[in-house]
């Protein structure tokens, strides 16, 4: 493994991803209705990296658009 990877510069990326995923999951737990089953969205948010969270925010929820 390359040792000169500057983790202090890459860490923010991981933080951004974490925030998006956590907020996505919180929103998912609160929302009344989603397009498609909720468990599917959990999978998409957790495994789908940033794209999964974005997908959820754009098309996942029915009540806020």
């Amino acid at each position: 493994m390359n040792t000169d990877i500057p983790w202090d510069l890459i860490a923010p990326l991981i933080v951004i991803w974490l925030i998006l995923a956590v907020v996505g999951l919180i929103s998912l737990s609160r929302t009344e209705s989603t397009r498609g089953p909720k468990w599917l969205w959990v999978v998409i948010i957790v495994c789908g990296n940033i794209l999964g969270s974005v997908l959820y925010f754009v098309v996942g929820r029915k009540d806020v658009s």
Binding site: L9, I10, P12, L13, I16, W17, I19, L20, V23, G24, S27, I50, S53, V54, F57, R61, V64, S65
Partner: peptide, 22 residues
């Protein structure tokens, strides 16, 4: 704010911006 647009749109933009130099 309530639809989290104020959160995810800026964050995605930040991500996009930071990706290229990395």
């Amino acid at each position: 704010g309530r639809s989290y647009r104020w959160l995810w749109v800026p964050l995605v933009f930040l991500m996009l911006g930071v990706m290229q130099p990395i």
